[in-house]
Nucleic acid binder design. Sequence first.
RNA 1: GCUGGGGUGGCGGAGUGGACAAUCGCAUCAGACUGUAAAUCUGACGCUCGAAAGGGCUACAUAGGUUCGAAUCCUGUCCCCAGCA
Length: 362
Amino acid sequence: MRPKYFRFNGGRLVLPVFFPDATRGFVKTLDFLDVKKTGVQGVLVNTFHLWQLMNRKILKKAGGIRGFMGYHGAVISDSGGFQVMSVIKKGISSGRITDEGVILNPSRNKRLIFTPEESIRFQMELETDMVVVLDDFTDPGVGHKKADESVSRTIDWARRSKAEFEKICKKKGLKGDKKPYLLGVVQGGEFMDLREKCTKELVKIGFDGLGWGGWPIKNGKINFESAKVISKFSPSNYLLYGLGIGKPEDVVNCFGLGFSIFDCVLPTRDGRHGRLYLFNSDSIDEININVGDFYHFYDAKKEKNLTDNSKISNYCDCILCKNYSRSYLYHLFKIENLIAMRLSSIHNLRFYSLLLDKLRNA
RNA sequence: GCUGGGGUGGCGGAGUGGACAAUCGCAUCAGACUGUAAAUCUGACGCUCGAAAGGGCUACAUAGGUUCGAAUCCUGUCCCCAGCA
């Protein structure tokens, strides 16, 4: 049996859960009261970004990232593997990846190295509920040899991460349920033999769960094959985490494969872009996620909404749907008022919240 | 009334004889967005035929003119702005 609960900050959450991304310590355009009101129970912060941004003394004084943010829900810290891929491998900022870790060159006279150990150390200072090991992202579309290299490095880094994690736990006197979860990340791209190998090797090292890493998406469609492999070869007591998953239907499908933790930028990003998610339903009770098209998009920025005084939806209980018209939201977007993005993000998070409620009660 | 400047596509605003259906921005329309480099990005945008390549037509206030060729030069008319009366 897969775990039914997620421990956090002295409490526990019923799985599955969906956490929006508070990458740099905040959910864009929202405060945590907004987040809480949507029914969202936790957020994901990013180690790589915070590591570069935060003063560790301030962090310690605040009582970790939760204390610093003034947030009391669950918090997972992502390792930074994805950022290394998206920022460094694509050449956005300078740096390179070695077996030792990620070498960064933020300026000429500074040389920073972000190692798997450093990622763990910093996450332990963040005092999050789940710590994710630094992984070497398998570039999408890469051949078997390159993918294998990233898997080998991911496994090596996972081993080092685990050792560092245990060392710190011992030093801090953290045992049993007092220890945060430690999550391994499976790479291997589209090669199932590599996914299998990575999963098995990570299990040998020993984690509380595994994350589905990489970029299994082509033309907006997810290939679930590697998720199946991870689910198949991981012990039943492992938590399975769909990193960056995903679209509503992707979350539903992934849950069906045994995954129970999700995070994604989509609800908040789409919200900021004026794309709202709406269940094809007239009431919360009638929401049925077992049918093919259980939701659709509402594009808040279309000019036709200007004269539409109706609510965004009838079923939703978020502050946008309860209080404001399509016309007013259009107006707010039109004048580029921040409130438009806030209300839309709140609505979309409420959508995901309801979606997860339905999954929990399915 | 005089003098000077100007009238360009839904709007702003380039262009001052051929490469102009007309840079660019805005608006509009369509699409994208999945461990946030993203309050972002891409495409279309006179009418019309075509799947496309490409073709046809009408356009730079308006009426004429000069020229092989005009949004660009000349003249008349209308309108706007600034300065002077």
